[in-house]
Simulated scan of single mutants.
Amino acid sequence: MKDIKDKFSNQAKQYQQFRPVYPQLLYSFLDSKVTAFDAAWDCGTGNGQVATQLAERFTEVCATDISEKQLAEASQKENIKYSLSRAEKTGYPDDKFDLTTVAQAVHWFDHDSFFKEVLRVSKPNAVVAIWGYNLLRISAEIDKLIDTFYGQTLGEYWDYERKLVEDEYKSMPFPFEEFEVPRFEIVANWDDQQVLGYFNSWSAVQNFIEKNGTNPVDDLAGQLSSYWQADETKKIRFRIFTRMGRVKK
Rank of each mutant, 00 (worst) to 15 (best):
V195P: 04
D231T: 11
E178P: 10
K249A: 14
P173Q: 10
V128S: 11
V61Q: 02
K249V: 08
K248Q: 14
G213W: 01
F176R: 12
S201A: 13
A51Q: 07
D112V: 11
D6I: 08
R183D: 15
K5Q: 11
V102H: 00
A12Y: 09
T45Q: 14
W202K: 12
L135D: 14
E60P: 00
F174V: 02
V118R: 07
S122T: 14
I80Y: 14
Q193M: 08
S32K: 10
K116C: 15
I142G: 08
E56S: 09
F208L: 01
D38G: 12
G132H: 12
K96E: 01
Q76S: 04
E168C: 12
E60T: 11
Q152H: 10
N10R: 06
D143V: 10
S203D: 07
R120Y: 11
T90N: 06
E180Y: 03
I146C: 09
I142F: 09
L54K: 04
Q206F: 01
P124E: 11
A103C: 09
S113F: 03
L224Y: 05
L54Q: 09
K211E: 08
Y157G: 08
A55T: 02
Y227Q: 01
T242Y: 10
D167K: 03
K77H: 15
L224R: 03
Q14E: 06
V34R: 08
V121I: 15
F114S: 14
Y157Q: 08
V21W: 12
Y169K: 04
G155L: 03
Y92V: 00
R183I: 07
V106Y: 01
K235V: 15
R162A: 10
R183V: 12
A39V: 04
A126V: 05
A12P: 05
D98E: 09
V187S: 14
G155P: 05
N200A: 05
V50N: 00
I240Y: 11
D167L: 01
I138L: 15
Y160E: 11
K249L: 14
V118Y: 05
V165I: 12
D42V: 01
Q104R: 02
A140I: 08
E178W: 07
L164V: 03
Q206R: 02
I209P: 01
Y150E: 13
